[in-house]
Amino acid sequence: MTRHPTLTVIDRYATADPGLDEATVWSVEVHLEDCADCRARLAGSTTPQSRALIDRVATGLDREISAGPVPAGRARQLRYRWMTVVLLPWLVMTGAVLGCAALLTILETGLPSLVLLLAPVAPLPGVAAAWSRRTDPCWELIAGTPAAGLTMVLRRTVAALVLVIPALAAVGAGTGASLALMLLPCLAFTVATLLLGTLVGVRRAAVGLAASWTLAVVLPSLATARLPVLLQADSAGLWALTTVLLAGWATTRAGSFRRLSNSN
C-alpha cells in the first residue's frame, strides 16, 4: 500500500515544481491512478494553464465524438442477443397457422377446437430454429464460442416462447379454449423437444414430435370430431407433472448442447 502524498507534494506536482525529484513524481502518479481522493485534491491545486489545456482537449474530444458514428442502441443489441433475426420467419409462420386455426374453429362449429389441438406443437418450429445448422448461417462461428450450449438454446427457446405464448393466449381467449390446457402441453412439448434433441438433434426431435402428435392425436380427433382425453380438463395436472419431470431430466443432459452435432 502506498501512503497518501501530502498536500504540499501534490501542490508541487500540480505546478510541475522542478525541485520535486523524479522518483517522487512517479510514486505520486502511480498513487493518483488508484486514489480518487488524491485526484480530487490534485484538481483543487491545478494551475490555470493545466485547466486551459484540459478544456482544449475536452472540446477537441467532444467535436470528434459528435462527428463519429452514433453508438448502437440498446434495442438493436437486445434484438441480436436474443436472436429473433433467425427465429422471426418461423414465428411469423406459427402465428399465421394459429390464426387460420382460430378462424376455422370459429367458422366450423362441428369440429373440435383446432387451436387447442395445435397448441402443443406451436412453439416447435421456433425451438427447432433455435439450434440448427440449417437456419443459422453463423452456426460454425457460434458453435465454437463459450456461450454455445444449454444457456444459448434456452435463451433462444424462451425468445420463441415469449412470442408464441401471447399469440396462443390471445387466440385461445378468442375461441374460448382453456388457457391451462393450451399452455401446459405447449411447455411439455418444448421441453420434450429439447430433451429428445440431446439424443437425435433438436430439429429432428421437433419434426418427430410434431409428426407423432399430428398422426396420433390431431387426425383421429378431426375424424371423430371429438376432443381427445389428453386435452380435456382433467388432464391438466398430468401435463404439468410431465413438464416438470422432463425438465428435470433435460437438465441432467445439459452437456450435450456444448457442441452442435451433425444431426442438428
Partner: peptide, 13 residues
C-alpha cells in the same frame, strides 16, 4: 472456411 453471417448486421455489430 465458409462462414455465414447475418446480412443486416453492420461489421461492428
Amino acid at each position: 472456411q465458409h462462414f455465414g453471417f447475418y446480412p443486416r448486421f453492420t461489421v461492428r455489430e
